[in-house]
Design a protein around this nucleic acid. Structure first.
Length: 203
DNA sequence: CCCATGATGCCCT
DNA sequence: GGGCATCATGGGT
């Protein structure tokens, strides 16, 4: 079952938590990539110094965060990697959830090619674990880039669905890589599935 | 295991 | 011109 607009319009921390265990799907002209979401972070906009939209900042790059919920916000970071986010809350409220870790499901051979330019059978064990266990890595594996910025996740190209319900424990910690964000760096806005091997950083 | 470093481009001031 | 919601690599322990 594909997630509908109502899923995304809710409180951002709730969406971040409930995205765990759901499956992100990218259909590239019939080539299907998918992976189970195992790690997320909430970015809350106005009061959150770690968010691009902090203080209501509204520039061309951040504009998507102000738009309707259930769309993709994808931006280039450090000149060479992309980060994939899901826009939440009602239009006008610039919040989003960053997807930080996936457990690969469909299209794993193509992911191996995209990430390491190798056949799946040629990957080392370390490379297998490194296919999608980080925000930049999963974008490279799943072919997510700037062209998909603003893509509607309620469409047929890029979407999130619930395949089966399973139970797991959720760990809630500080976010990663935002040491500049002063008090906001200590906000407990990161969520991940306990024990999953595709978490970007343990601890 | 850990830590340090370089790659590289776009945004924003 | 500074900085960034990252990653791979290389060397030391």
């Amino acid at each position: 079952m594909k997630l509908e607009r109502d899923f995304y319009i809710r409180d951002t921390q709730t969406v971040a938590r409930e995205l765990l265990g759901k499956v992100l799907v990218h259909n590239v002209n019939g080539k299907i990539f998918s992976g189970k979401i195992v790690e997320t972070e909430a970015y809350l906009g106005i009061i959150d110094k770690a968010a691009h939209s902090y203080g209501g900042k509204r520039t061309k790059r951040v504009e998507i965060m102000y738009g309707p919920p259930g769309r993709a916000y994808i931006y280039l970071i450090y000149g060479m990697y992309y980060c994939f986010n899901v826009v939440t809350k009602e239009e006008g409220t610039p919040e989003a959830v960053l997807i930080r870790g996936l457990e690969p499901i469909d299209g794993i051979s193509l992911m191996a090619k995209n990430r390491f330019n190798k056949e799946l059978s040629q990957l080392t064990n370390a490379q297998l674990k490194n296919l999608t266990n980080g925000p930049g890595k999963l974008c490279q594996a799943m072919e997510l880039d700037k062209r998909l910025n603003g893509e509607d996740l309620c469409g047929d190209t890029l979407y999130i669905e619930e395949r089966k319900v399973e139970s797991f424990n959720i760990i809630n910690t500080k976010r990663i890589g935002i040491d500049y964000a002063e008090e906001a760096k200590d906000f407990l806005y990161r969520y991940y599935i306990e024990g999953n091997s595709y978490i970007s950083k343990t601890k």
